[in-house]
Nucleic acid binder design. Structure first.
Length: 153
DNA sequence: GCCAACGTTGGC
DNA sequence: GCCAACGTTGGC
């Protein structure tokens, strides 16, 4: 069992958007960063859990918990010239980008804000990837101890 | 809107 | 392979 953080701009896709989907499940498309892709494609497994994080918004925060329900498969949005995430270097015979399916497990009653997380920057969350200088990954690993600590906040 | 910190691209 | 230019991310 692995743990992850899924980053999304709520203006693009929010936790409420996920909650409104059938079976509260949606594919996590649009990842266009190799490191993030590799985590998804090579390490993410069915039943893994993840934090749903809202970025680039008034209150950046972890807002919920999701579960991986389908392992990596080609991201079809890369094949669609009309899609925002179109990439002409990816095609169905040799897909470059991948996605997984995630299901909402729980929306947090109280978001765990970036500000709160930062207050543990030099303590329990010293090595938390989200707090690393300049880390802009949209998919990042979370250790079990980090996961447990954050859920205990 | 600003800007730091990256990642990507492309000429050489 | 190097590196400058450029584009993107994301907090503030």
């Amino acid at each position: 069992m692995n743990y992850w953080l899924f980053k999304s701009e709520p203006g693009e896709f929010s936790i409420d958007d996920l909650a409104s989907r059938p079976r509260k499940t949606e594919h996590w498309d649009g990842v266009r960063n190799y490191q993030a892709r590799n985590f998804m494609r090579d390490k993410m497994r069915k039943h893994d859990l993840g934090f749903f994080y809202h970025s680039s918004c008034a209150e950046p925060a972890i807002v919920g918990i999701v579960r991986v329900t389908k392992e990596a498969y080609p991201d079809h949005t890369a094949f669609d010239p009309g899609d925002k995430h179109f990439d002409d270097k990816s095609d169905p015979t040799s897909p470059r980008w991948f996605m997984v399916d995630v299901q909402l497990v729980q929306k947090l009653d109280v978001p765990i804000t970036l500000q709160t997380l930062k207050s543990f920057n030099n303590r329990a969350l010293r090595d938390f990837a989200l707090l690393k200088r300049g880390n802009r990954l949209s998919i990042m690993p979370v250790t079990k101890s980090q996961w447990d600590f954050i859920l205990g906040l």
